[in-house]
Structure formats: C-alpha cells, structure tokens
Amino acid sequence: MRIACPLCGARDRREFTYRGAALPVPALDAGAEAWSVHVHLRENPAGPLEELWQHELGCGAWLKVRRDTVTHAMLGVVLAEDAGLAARDGEGPA
C-alpha cells in the first residue's frame, strides 16, 4: 500500500500514521450537539472515504487521503492545509 504524498511522491505505508475520517471542524461555539456529532458519529462506508494521514516519517505534512475502504485503492491525496477543514477564529470551515 502506497500513498502519493504531494511533496515527497509515492511512499510506502510504513512512513505514514493514520488519524481518522477527515471531518470539517465545527465552530468553537457550535454547541454541544454539533461537537458530540463531530466526535462520535461516523458513516463507516464500504467504499470511498476521506481520511487524514500524517507523513510522519517523511516530510511531516498532514494529508487528506481519499481511500476505498474495500479495496484500499488510493483515489486522491491533497495537503490537509489546502483541504479547507480547519475552522478559523470561530467561523465554520471554509
């Protein structure tokens, strides 16, 4: 299994660590219900899933990876910083 790091190129899976599903982060004041959903609820699809990996033993970048959970096919990789997941100063994700 290889992941094509946008900076380093295709690298072996052993260089990466897994975080989990790549979810937009709710605004800080979105309330307990929205945060509970963000923390606990997952779709768990059999098929394409967007998730976060870190190229920990390589360049250190966080990546948003689209992976097929059935075949492990890597369907696309972008730097997490370009993926618009982070909330900014109390706003929702971009």
Partner: peptide, 8 residues
C-alpha cells in the same frame, strides 16, 4: 534528498 524512514 529524501525525508524517509531508516529502520523506524
């Protein structure tokens, strides 16, 4: 150059 893994 490469940042990579060398024996963990």
């Amino acid at each position: 150059t490469a940042r990579t893994e060398l024996k963990h």
